[in-house]
Design a protein around this nucleic acid. Structure first.
Length: 566
RNA sequence: CGGAGUAUAGCUCAGCUUGGUAGAGCGCCACCUUCGGGAGGUGGAGGUCGUAGGUUCAAAUCCUGCUACUCCGACCA
């Protein structure tokens, strides 16, 4: 591509409404332009990156035996009413009405449509297993779109849906897709982790997420040192420590703590570390009676774990202040497990602790030296909190916490949709069965942003070569003055193209500084400079995007080809 | 939806407190000089100051409503 005809539009200044690096750099490099909240135009530069990601995804899906289809973005309401999700999706779904007042949505996902398609075309076990995928625009009316492409409302996703005769075959295909996703990320060249995910309301089904590691990631991942365990913090489990509970030290004692409402206040007032305190959280049970949850002061409640406990209302509902006062006689901030006639569930983190500071259920007072068994009956113990670095994983290896950007999710759906939409096939005995389904999502547009979050420096983006908008840029020096430079550039450009190198020639006629700055900002992995000096000396000046210095190579397309590692 | 903030030229912002004739830098166009790391000069184009109303002789500026966008929380590829 000749950049003079490429509508490149870069800026030095960072747009005011971009908060994270990928968003800032994509705007500065001119890859995307905002139309509205969560809505972006892909420019000629941006779409080159997007298309490269798509190609890799498509190749790997094809190689894994999945079949490409393309489903409508606009979907009739009836289908969603059948699956029960017309209501369940709520405001996430963009709804619309046609001229005859029929209702539609802009598809946020395609389980319903694919199942409807399968229903029309699949009727025999001989047609299974099968896996259909598409690369397509989705719209989700996110409560809060943000961070540019990271959480856009309209975005491009590769979604695949597989159909199976039984769970064993679903599991087989799940592993195939899992491996395909790993290959995609390996080929793109990003550092990632596969983690166990919360399987949500469809309990029991297996689900894993693929996260690109980045400091700006929205998700926390708990990864065991020995590599045997990795989970999204939402789903990461831990266990009680192996250290036995020490014997009680002092007697339970009530201390005045006027004005203390938080663990931080309490620590300051009593000069204790947060680990020596316990906090109390009151949630509602399914029977509408409050349940007291007790956690170590420095730990945080994991709401998914809490609502997963039998007897606790789903979705999790925190008790309001009047309910708390009615049952405890004190407000939040002074609550504890002493003299409580309600169900008490304590986290493993306080199971083997002694002499804790806890609320006294009396405004402005706390107990010190609280001990289970002695000062309150032994409660139920459960895994209630978000794990923290250093916690033991289920097999004992210590966990560390990483941050990641979710770019893929593989999921065993079971028969939720096939049953709801009445998909059935005949088995070899002529008996009707409901197929098992799997679904596999991959955020094509999101991974472009995720790649930048992982690969950038002060000058701009440092693309992995596999998804760079161009592999190589040729920069002429004083092309307007030197016919030799112009001819050399044209020749080198043509030769590179013949070799299949994805090359850009910066023939915009700019001064060198802006050309260098643009090449670095848009992240082209390889750069050569063509000048009279070099032509006379028989050398090309080469610089890799991450190199700190230039290097001289022989003036030949062959030497350049080797430098590019082709 | 709850909380916080912003809205003036294509972009980044000043002007608003104390009402009085629209500003800078970058970018864009033309010409000249420059030309190996975001050059300099001269001239130029470009804004109904988000929007609707109100107060006033007079509103970018004060008041009210609305809208859009950004950030913090629950949601997700």
């Amino acid at each position: 591509m000749r950049l003079s005809a490429f509508a490149l539009s870069t800026t030095k200044e960072t747009p005011a409404d971009a908060e994270i690096v990928s968003h800032q750099l994509m705007l500065r490099a001119g890859m995307i332009r905002k139309l509205g909240a969560g809505l972006y135009t892909w420019t000629p530069l941006g779409i080159r990156v997007l298309r490269k990601v798509e190609s890799i995804v498509r190749e790997e899906m094809d190689a894994a035996g999945a079949l490409e289809v393309l489903m409508p973005a606009v979907q009739p309401a009836e289908l969603w009413q059948q699956s029960g999700r017309w209501e369940a999706m709520g405001d996430l779904m963009l709804r619309m009405t046609d001229r005859a007042e029929r209702q539609y949505c802009f598809g946020p996902t395609h389980e319903e449509v694919i199942t409807d398609y399968a229903k029309r075309d699949i009727s025999s076990y001989k047609q299974l297993p099968v896996n259909f995928y598409q690369i397509q625009t989705k719209f989700r009316d996110e409560i809060r779109p943000r961070f540019g492409l990271m959480r856009a409302r309209e975005f491009i996703m590769k979604d695949a849906y597989s159909f199976h005769m039984d769970e064993a075959d679903l599991d087989r295909e799940y592993q195939v897709m899992r491996a395909a996703y790993a290959r995609i990320l390996d080929r793109i060249g990003l550092d990632y982790r596969i983690v166990a995910a919360d399987s949500g309301a469809i309990g029991g089904a297996k689900s894993e997420e693929f996260h690109v590691l980045a400091h700006s990631g929205e998700d926390e991942l708990a990864v065991a040192e020995n590599g045997a365990y990795a989970a999204n913090i939402e789903a990461a489990t831990t266990r009680a420590s192996d250290t036995p509970r020490p014997a009680p030290g002092g007697e339970l004692r009530k201390v005045d703590t006027p004005g203390v409402a938080t663990i931080a206040d309490l620590c300051a007032a009593l000069e204790l570390p947060a680990e020596a305190t316990a906090k109390a959280i009151v949630v509602m049970g399914e029977d509408d009676k409050p349940v007291l949850l007790v956690l170590r002061g420095d730990h945080s409640l994991n709401e998914i774990k809490a609502e997963g406990i039998d007897g606790i209302a789903t979705p999790l509902q925190f008790a309001d202040e009047s309910t708390i006062r009615e049952h405890f006689g004190a407000g939040p901030g002074s609550l504890g497990p002493v003299n409580v006639n309600l169900r008490v569930i304590a986290d493993y983190g306080v199971q083997n602790a002694a002499d804790m500071a806890v609320g006294a259920n009396y405004d402005g007072a706390h107990f010190v030296n609280f001990n289970w068994g002695r000062d309150a009956v032994e409660p139920e113990f459960a895994d209630l909190r978000n794990v923290v670095a250093g916690d033991p994983s289920p097999d004992g290896s210590p966990l560390s916490i990483l941050r990641g950007i979710e770019v893929g999710h593989v999921f065993q759906l079971g028969d939720k949709y096939s049953r709801a939409l009445e998909l059935s096939v005949l088995d070899e005995n002529g008996k009707s069965i409901t197929p098992q389904m799997g679904c596999y999502g991959f955020g094509v547009s999101r991974i472009v942003a995720a790649a930048i979050e992982q690969c950038f420096d002060n000058a701009g983006i440092c693309w992995p070569t596999a998804i760079a908008p161009f592999e190589l840029v040729i920069i002429p020096i004083k092309a307007d003055k030197s016919a030799a430079v112009r001819e050399a550039c044209d020749k080198l450009y043509a030769e590179c193209r013949q070799l299949g190198i994805d090359v850009a020639l910066d023939d915009r006629g700019l001064r060198p500084g802006p050309m260098f700055a643009d090449a670095e900002l848009i992240g082209i992995p390889h750069r050569v400079v063509v000048s009279d000096r070099g032509i006379e000396a028989g050398t090309l000046e080469y610089k890799g995007r991450r190199d700190s210095e230039n290097s001289e190579i022989e003036y030949s397309v062959e030497a350049l080809r080797q430098k590019l590692g082709r």
